[in-house]
Amino acid sequence: MSMTPAEAAGNHVTAKAEKVKKTKPVRETFKQYILGPVIAFVLFIALWQAVPALLGMPHYILPKPTDVISAAVSDGALLWEAVQITVFESVIGFLLSAVIGIAVSILLASSKIIERSIYPYAIILQTLPVVAVAPIVVIWFGAGFNAIVVVSFLIGFFPVISNTLMGLNSVDREKDDLFSLYNASKWQKMWKLRLPSAMPFIMAGLKISCTLSIVGAIVGEYVAGVGGGEGGLGYAITVSAIQVNTAFIFACAIAGALLGITFYLLISLLSNKILGSWHESAMKK
């Protein structure tokens, strides 16, 4: 094989580029995506530790990270119990909002007339502060587990509905034509075309609603928390607030945040698994 010098040089460059590329991911990724956040985190914690000490703030106003950790450790059993209860409530709330949200959207979307009449309200209801109606939920369902789950469900329900409805109406015209041309029935179109087309939207809705369901469960516990020591994070926070146990409130809040992140990652994983085979936005990242 003969090669002009330019070609040879070109080849050399690409070979080199490939070599760089191979070593690049590990070191560069570390620098860009891990090192920065880690430094920011360490600085933040250091600052947090230093400020109350320097200003002489009492621990019940702003506890230091070490106070928070010791509170979490000393009341570890309580915290763990509360986390478990909140997880249970929010998982049920989330599953209800996913299942009912998708089912209701499908029913709404199956009739143009119904959809047109109800869709505006679904959008308006989404902006309804569920927190504001939580006390009504307690009146209807009684204080305790049921009311908490219902609040968690309500808060996660509307993002699922509005995303699913949007997705079910996002089918491209040519694909819709294809199904019409082969005489597909309304329900065939729904199962084989509209629902798969809506998947990326549905997944986006579920990602929003899974973190909201935890917020919903905690809010639910604020207003409908049960007495007798059996309560989730929201209940634990309320009790700690009365006792001015600020460090433990922080521990509960951080636990809630970690729960939210875990939920989000789990749903993202599921979403990538489901969409991975065809949806491009799921391919990147």
Binding site: E174, K175, D177, L178, L181, L193, P196, M199, S277, W278, H279
Partner: peptide, 11 residues
């Protein structure tokens, strides 16, 4: 009908 675009279902 063969459309101007392939018009395949990606899933």
């Amino acid at each position: 009908f063969v459309f101007q675009e392939p018009n395949l279902l990606p899933w």
